[in-house]
């Protein structure tokens, strides 16, 4: 347990530089985005109303009021989120492969630590999980700051103020990251966690059997997806509509936990018996 926590801290430390760059980029891009979009909206309004003498009501009708939605849907906002998502997708692989690359193979050290090798895997998974949550938390903190910036830049009559939850619930991708209900939150991130474990297992297949392992890894991903999606495929593919929604939810939760358990068990086996440094 102690080794696991130390390893988590260690892994977090290793990613810190890139992580801080991601955070910095997100903060900059989103806040600059708010200011630029607000200013251009106000400029547009000024031009229309003072130069072309468009009545206020008509302007609002044509252009709509400025709200955080137009910010949230812009590239300024989505861009860094997409970048972070891509970075973490990449990092799921990189967190393993960088320990194997080059002459300085740190994986020797990790695998010779006097602790269960599974802790190495768990610490890597935890790191990814924690850092993703950290980014989303930062997003939650950035939203009210962005709203405030918009309020400073756009006069009251021209804007629609929204609460943080309204902004989130109206944006499809934010709603996935920060769902409305805590249960949904658990489901979303549980799914994410499951995917990470499945991918880790696939990576360990590759690390154990190399080219043959790539194939095995892909096959494992397919099997895991098949197990998890089986009831849904049965339900919608064959149009059987056999299960009630609540039953389906419970079955999916059980299957999700099962897939995670199988992945961890397989990973443990591969780490102890098959992996080659």
């Amino acid at each position: 347990m102690k080794s696991y926590l130390k390893l988590v801290n260690f892994e977090i430390g290793r990613f810190m530089k890139i992580y801080l760059v991601l955070i910095g980029l997100t903060i900059l891009s989103q806040l600059i985005g708010v200011i630029i979009l607000s200013k251009s909206y106000v400029a547009n309004a000024n031009e229309a109303i003072y130069e072309y003498l468009v009545p206020f009501g008509q302007f609002i009708e044509e252009y709509g009021r400025m709200s955080m939605m137009s910010v949230v849907d812009s590239i300024w906002f989505m861009g860094p989120i997409a970048l972070c998502a891509a970075a973490f997708l990449f990092y799921i692989f990189f967190i393993w492969y960088r320990d194997w690359v080059g002459k300085n193979t740190f994986i020797y050290r990790l695998f010779m630590l006097p602790t269960a090798r599974l802790n190495v895997l768990l610490s890597k998974a935890t790191t990814i999980f924690l850092l993703v949550l950290g980014l989303v938390a930062m997003q939650l903190i950035l939203l009210p700051i962005g709203s405030m910036l918009m309020k400073w830049n756009v006069p009251l009559d021209f804007r629609t103020d929204m609460t943080i939850r309204e902004i989130i619930n109206n944006s499809h991708y934010l709603f996935i990251l920060i769902p409305d209900s805590f249960i949904q939150f658990l489901i979303n991130y549980g799914l994410g966690f499951m995917a990470v474990f499945v991918l880790f297992t696939a990576i360990l297949f590759e690390r154990s059997f190399r080219w043959k392992g790539v194939l095995l890894g892909i096959v494992y991903c397919l099997i895991a997806s098949a197990i998890f999606l089986a009831p849904l495929i049965y339900e919608f593919g064959i149009q059987a509509s056999f299960f009630y929604p609540v039953e389906l939810l419970i079955i999916e939760i059980i299957l999700g936990i099962l897939v995670i358990a199988i992945s961890i068990w397989l990973s443990k086996f591969l780490l102890n018996k098959k992996v080659t440094v």
């Binding site: 988590v8 977090i12 949550l133 950290g134 938390a137 939650l140 943080i164 939850r165």
Partner: peptide, 24 residues
């Protein structure tokens, strides 16, 4: 030595905690 990790954990717990408790 653990301040970075602890900071991240605290921020995550506080932010999501406030968000979902407020929601509740």
């Amino acid at each position: 030595r653990y301040w970075k990790s602890i900071t991240i954990i605290i921020i995550v717990i506080l932010t999501f905690g406030v968000f979902y408790i407020q929601a509740a």
